[in-house]
Simulated scan of single mutants.
Amino acid sequence: MTTPQLPAPPATDAGFVPPSVGRRFGALVIDWVLCLLVSYFFADPVRDGWAPVVVLIAEYGFFLGLFAQTPGMYITRIRCLSWADGGRIGLVRALLRGALLALVVPALIMDGHRRGLHDRLTGSVIAPVPAPTADQGR
């Protein structure tokens, strides 16, 4: 039995191709709708605009920190990884990333790897979920 070789971290992978802005935006829209629905349990999101933002930051902290994907990212087949080593970014960096994303402006300024300021400040990158291989079913 052989151990599968882990993919190269995005920072050192010359062939790294980030997902499209459309997939990222689609994931964000799905997550935002979920945040609006959840915030209805404790506030009126129309009147209390802070409620869905707080839920979004908490969602990012929990899901990105533990699973590298929010529900929207799962549906659009993207994930958030550490730029340096390709692993999960952890709870603290995920919360910081969510707070920076809530500011909106950092997300609009991207580099060649489609990393917004919120990604660069937290050492993260959005990457596509690899397609399953035939070996994964064994």
Rank of each mutant, 00 (worst) to 15 (best):
I89V: 12
V105E: 05
V33T: 09
A27C: 07
A27K: 01
R93E: 06
R114I: 13
S124Q: 05
P18K: 07
D44K: 04
Y74I: 15
L103M: 11
F42P: 09
H113T: 12
L28V: 10
A99Y: 00
P71M: 09
F63A: 14
P71N: 10
E59L: 15
Y74A: 15
A107R: 00
R120E: 10
E59A: 06
Y60R: 10
V54R: 01
R23W: 07
V54P: 04
G116Q: 05
V17M: 02
A11P: 12
G22L: 15
D44P: 10
R24G: 11
L100A: 01
A27E: 06
V38L: 11
S20R: 02
D111E: 05
V105C: 01
L56S: 07
L34G: 13
F63C: 15
S124C: 07
F25G: 13
H118K: 04
R97W: 00
I89D: 06
L6D: 09
G72D: 10
L34P: 07
R93A: 10
P19M: 09
L28R: 00
F63K: 02
V21S: 04
G98C: 09
A102H: 05
L121D: 03
V33Q: 02
V105A: 08
D44A: 12
D31W: 02
V38I: 15
Q5P: 09
I109P: 04
L36C: 11
A8L: 15
F42D: 13
I30A: 11
L91K: 00
A99H: 00
